[in-house]
Design a protein around this nucleic acid. Sequence first.
RNA 1: GCGCCCGUAGCUCAAUCGGAUAGAGCAUUGGACUACGAAUCCAAAGGUUGGAGGUUCGAGUCCUCCCGGGCGCGCCA
Length: 544
Amino acid sequence: MIVKKIREELLKHLPEDLPFKVEPPREEAFGDYATNAALVLAGRLKRPPRELADELAGKLSARADLFSKVEVAGPGFINFFVAPGYWQSVVKEVLSRGEDYGRSELGRGRKVQVEFVSANPTGPLHIGHGRGAAVGDTLARILSFAGYEVVKEYYVNDRGRQMEILGRSVWLRARELSGEKIDFPEDHYRGDYIKDLARKLLAERPNLLTLPEEEAVAIARDFALREILEEIKQDLIDFGVSYDVWYSERGLYERGEVEEALRALSEAGHLYEKEGALWFRASAFGDEKDRVVRRSNGEPTYFASDIAYHREKFLKRGFDLVVDVWGADHHGYVPRLKAVLSALEIDPERLQVLLIQMVNLIEGGKLKSMSTRAGEFVTLRELMDEVGRDAVRFTFLTRKCDAPLEFDVELAKRQSQENPVYYVQYAHARLSSVFRKTEEAGLKLETFGDADYTRLDTPEDFKLFKLLDAFPQVVEDSARSLEPHRLTYFLLDLATAFHDYYTKHRFLSEDEELSRARLALARAVKQVLKTGLNLLGVSAPERM
RNA sequence: GCGCCCGUAGCUCAAUCGGAUAGAGCAUUGGACUACGAAUCCAAAGGUUGGAGGUUCGAGUCCUCCCGGGCGCGCCA
């Protein structure tokens, strides 16, 4: 990573806390990397930026092993032209680190939890959950690769009012199936899957309807929960998502965590009673208003569970950082949860909430509308079956998550240049094909290590070197900013550079030394494509 | 009414804690396979970054106001 080296060199001559940047300039004429260090320093020292830039450039240009030229330009930017020898050494670096190339120590083993999807087990996952799954899972992979100790978790709301309604929904459908005329309530779950569950339950428990209502509903509830959760797990597995922990809300109560958390808040003086209910003084910590934690009927609210859950994450389970991935419709919930952390004297910055915006499904140029209650929604399963796992995951990862996403079904299905996932995968498959040819030609792979990299000297070679060199930085940036889509865009760039290279140069030629060097480059590119696709949870096919 | 998110090329989107002349893909037009996979490549054209002020060496990015769209504002989850 040349950026790191430039930064290190600069820091030898600059105050440690100076917030300067080193980044590739827009114009190639301005070198490979540029820094605004002199401009920032000028503001602090009240000295002319050009003058400071000249001084710095003079010192840095001594590193002839790294730079072929260091110049001052514009208002005081310092432009670095990296020595060809450095670039060429990147291939060797990639090959020697292999699948660990890009792995970093950024996290230094800090414990981070990524909690995502956590959809109520009251129905199948829909495409919105799918987006959350893709983002959460990929983020977890990236954080892990960047040196964090990561736990992936799904919080299961397996108690409370929604569960009761679910049980009643199934029970009512079961009665309907046995010929009874039912006026199905508006606020119950109306999807067809409820009827399927009712049918299955009746087959298992033929005596269900002879039982007292309360008992029958409880049976229906537990049955539906188990069945739906199994389906959710299977959907996620097929989507390439596996969890370390399935966390039960019910368990929180059984272990007394909720009462303990409320007691802690109470002892700290942050709770009060009003109109028979118990309130948390959220407004004292930046929230709009105070929030109920225990209703006047004695039932704790969902919020109470969440207080206990997050308290446990930080105080008992020892996570340094917690990332919650939520649907954007829950955004109003963030301030109250952060308020709880403040009240518990936990730095609220240690909780990062990613709000995933809506997915609009476009089919035949038309928007498909959705409503969970009415049962009209496209499920993740249906979308996967229709367009394929790789295309779905990749598409979900082509946007920053706080922007709504338009998912064009027909486009995602098309196996052509319009579909970016195939563009990247094709690059990988093409490279695989090159190596199949290489084997046929009988070239020895082991000899790549001592290839003469100075033979790689075209503009297309350097374009690839720079991208390979930047990969570890992209991983770190994605981890730091919690923005997996940066990696997606990097892979598209790398694939573009490779396809361009492929049409201009041959990997296999009469010139054996040149072939050897180019194959080494090809192998490095293939490695980084594969590592990157793995991080996205998208396959890197040998053939397509 | 209050709060959060979004507004960038015809369409879908990028743009690194504020950096130099705002970039891709698609669509449009024109071109490239007698050698490793044409699911590819090259070129042209496409912009008052929703609008108006402000902050400064420098603003798509930060601040204020306005316009438009989405989502919240419950002793639901």
